[in-house]
Design a protein around this nucleic acid. Structure first.
Lengths: 251, 251
DNA sequence: TTATTATTGTTCTAAAATGAGACAATAAGC
DNA sequence: GCTTATTGTCTCATTTTAGAACAATAATAA
């Protein structure tokens, strides 16, 4: 016999979600030497927000995260990591959601499931910019990439969430050098030049690195496989292309 | 007008908590060159668990953590950090809690608030072993220190929670060298010898460090104030005592 | 064909950090 | 005063890093 629910415990779609708990995603992509993240724009309101979702009662938390992210990006097998839980009371401002619901023709009735206080689990994801197919959710109009350095104003505390995600990303960049091949790989295409990789580093860390030191360090890690040269048409020496050696090939 | 609640949304004490969300604490203390954590033992069941608690509807998440921790240790102003959210379905095993409730004379009625699925926010805390006064909660018999290297069997996934906390602690030990004086300070008493500090490092990292290198590195950080010598009565040179220079004195 | 140019892979040297040990200083016990 | 254990500091070899230099080389222009 299924668990009995009070009406306000059920989401608008009638799906059986855990109440009061949400997921928010900072989805990083890397394109043209810029870090970008996915944002939703809500119909007719000018409001921007991070992609998010809820957890089913019969679902592991991290599985819920994978499911929601797959719905937004059309990608499975995504590099995904929890980084913080946001649970301030100040989050509980129903103004933007009321506007969004009304613009969608939904009645923001008192006690509506969506208008309760939510504690939100922050995840960051690293994905291949070229492979993702951003898909809006039920309440939003568009789902698209925005440069991290030029984000629109975000609703609620979503700006803080992005900031915290970026800090975690930076810390992890240092910390996860072991296994780095699996970590950074999702942000780059299958093959890349050393300059591409350095540029990714520099963009995440927000500072310039020395070319010779960077190359020496990365090469000494034995995580790259050198492929053919890449002839770009530029009037200069052609760089080698590299590929990450997969984990199972390392040992 | 207060929010209307279904009966099963209210905790046994009648306090208005957020449903389905709990807090679990890995409280680290350092004593006699051993890392220890606080555990609760439940009355008449032989069950051990991490200290935990719930979030009031009118309370920030992190404030709830401070409140609960103060209730368990009689300490305020504790170094506290989120490290993970545990949300697997496998957590939802009501067997131990039923036993605990029955041993306490509480009826584990179907749909009882405590028997629902809980997603739990993991916090780790660093406190001065000598200053804490461990206090059991309503359902437990004792609250005491246990050596990390010799923990009893813990209920549910609490062993995993401890493991994850320890991994985070180790990673943070490297990462937080800046501000280290504030970070490690809670684990040591006000004054300490260089050997004490090195021992703390070695215990957290689980490996021996070279004495001269450690001393050179720590002293070069300019975060320690050298005080008088400590005469222990041992037949050898007396070590200096040190104290962390407070943050506001650093600049 | 031959310079020219921009970028790359590699090498070199000086500086800095670290590893591993040596050594003198010194409390307390004998 | 001698011994013992531990400490603070110093030394030297090794490793790592910073910073610059240099040769190689695609494409372009002369």
């Amino acid at each position: 016999m299924p668990h009995q629910l009070a009406p306000e415990e059920v989401s608008p779609d009638g799906v059986d979600f855990l109440p009061g708990l949400a997921l928010d995603f900072v989805v990083f992509g890397f394109h043209q030497n810029q870090l970008k993240i996915l944002l939703l724009e809500y119909w007719n309101t000018g409001l921007f927000a991070l992609p998010g979702g809820f957890i089913r009662r019969d679902e592991n938390l991290n599985d819920a995260a994978r499911r929601v992210l797959a719905e937004r990006t059309n990608l499975s097998d995504i590099y995904l990591e929890q980084f913080y839980i946001f649970g301030d009371l100040a989050r509980h401002d129903t103004t933007p959601l009321r506007a969004i619901m009304e613009a969608k023709g939904l009645a923001p009735t008192k006690g509506h499931w969506l208008l309760n206080r939510f504690v939100s689990v922050g995840y960051y994801a690293l994905i291949d910019f070229t492979k993702a197919v951003p898909i809006p959710d039920l309440l939003s109009d568009t789902c698209d990439w925005y440069e991290l350095s030029a984000l629109p104003t975000l609703m609620l505390d979503h700006r803080d969430i992005v900031q915290k995600a970026l800090e975690t990303l930076r810390a992890d960049l240092d910390r996860k050098l072991i296994g780095f091949n699996r970590w950074a790989a999702p942000l780059l295409s299958e093959t890349f030049t050393m300059t591409d990789l350095q540029s990714l580093y520099e963009t995440i860390l927000g500072q310039k690195l020395r070319r010779s030191s960077f190359q020496r360090k990365i090469l000494s890690m034995d995580i790259l496989e050198r492929l053919d040269k890449k002839y770009t048409g530029g009037a200069h020496k052609a760089p080698y292309l590299y590929r990450f050696i997969l984990e199972n090939k390392l040992h």
